[in-house]
Computed example of a mutant assay.
Amino acid sequence: MKEILREIGMISRCCATISDIEFKEINLSKGQYLYLVRIYENPGIIQDKVASLLKVDRSTAAKSIKKLVEHGLVKKEKDEHNKKELKLYCTEKGAELYPFLQREEEYSTEVITENITQDEIETTLKTLYKMRINIEKEWENMKKGIIRRY
């Protein structure tokens, strides 16, 4: 059983490294493309929601989003109903990158699923979804300060 997390980790690190190399020329590094994609797909999303979607802490999200704003890829706008909340939107420059990011995701998905049947893909996806739901409970508890007991 211990191999499951190791395999998932290796897949994740391979994909992250490939993306960091491919996106270096467009000034996206260390997973910033993930933020840009989520903001593009959810116009007006707030920073806390982006952090929750990506399963990162608030400060990590804040740093990445700040860099996207500095590079002119994302803009922040005050919510008209809640002046404390800033809604996030892709700029035109950020939106222009989305098709490229989508093509990379589709290509990587093709590579990762090569020689795997559609049934295997569907089963794997269902299993990964269940695994994510299971670990999200722990993640939420840890964020609340609940210590895990092994």
Rank of each mutant, 00 (worst) to 15 (best):
36 L>H: 15
36 L>T: 15
36 L>K: 13
37 V>F: 13
37 V>C: 15
38 R>S: 15
38 R>M: 14
39 I>L: 13
39 I>A: 15
40 Y>E: 15
40 Y>L: 08
41 E>L: 13
41 E>S: 15
42 N>K: 04
42 N>Q: 08
42 N>W: 01
43 P>D: 10
44 G>V: 09
44 G>E: 11
45 I>M: 04
45 I>T: 10
45 I>C: 09
45 I>P: 05
45 I>V: 14
46 I>E: 12
46 I>C: 12
46 I>H: 05
46 I>G: 12
48 D>I: 02
49 K>T: 14
49 K>D: 14
50 V>M: 02
51 A>N: 05
51 A>E: 08
51 A>S: 15
52 S>E: 14
52 S>I: 06
52 S>P: 02
53 L>W: 11
54 L>A: 08
54 L>N: 02
55 K>R: 10
55 K>Y: 05
56 V>R: 09
56 V>G: 12
56 V>C: 12
57 D>T: 04
57 D>V: 04
57 D>R: 06
58 R>M: 02
59 S>F: 13
60 T>G: 14
62 A>M: 08
63 K>F: 12
63 K>P: 02
65 I>Q: 07
65 I>H: 08
65 I>F: 07
65 I>L: 04
66 K>A: 03
66 K>R: 13
67 K>G: 01
67 K>Y: 06
68 L>W: 00
68 L>F: 02
68 L>E: 00
68 L>K: 00
68 L>C: 08
68 L>G: 05
69 V>W: 06
71 H>N: 06
71 H>Q: 04
72 G>D: 08
72 G>P: 06
72 G>S: 05
73 L>W: 00
74 V>D: 07
74 V>K: 06
74 V>W: 11
76 K>L: 12
76 K>F: 07
77 E>K: 13
77 E>T: 12
78 K>A: 03
81 H>R: 06
82 N>Y: 02
82 N>V: 03
82 N>E: 10
83 K>Q: 11
84 K>N: 14
86 L>W: 10
87 K>D: 05
87 K>I: 01
87 K>E: 12
87 K>F: 03
87 K>P: 04
88 L>E: 14
88 L>I: 04
88 L>G: 13
88 L>T: 08
91 T>H: 11
91 T>W: 10
92 E>W: 01
92 E>D: 11
92 E>Q: 08
93 K>N: 11
93 K>D: 10
94 G>R: 09
94 G>H: 09
95 A>P: 11
96 E>C: 06
97 L>R: 01
97 L>P: 02
98 Y>M: 09
98 Y>I: 09
99 P>I: 01
100 F>G: 12
100 F>Q: 14
101 L>C: 07
101 L>W: 01
102 Q>F: 00
102 Q>A: 03
103 R>M: 01
104 E>D: 13
104 E>W: 12
105 E>L: 05
106 E>L: 03
107 Y>K: 01
107 Y>I: 02
108 S>Q: 11
108 S>L: 09
109 T>W: 03
110 E>S: 11
110 E>N: 09
110 E>Q: 10
111 V>M: 02
111 V>K: 04
112 I>Q: 07
113 T>D: 06
113 T>L: 01
114 E>K: 13
114 E>R: 09
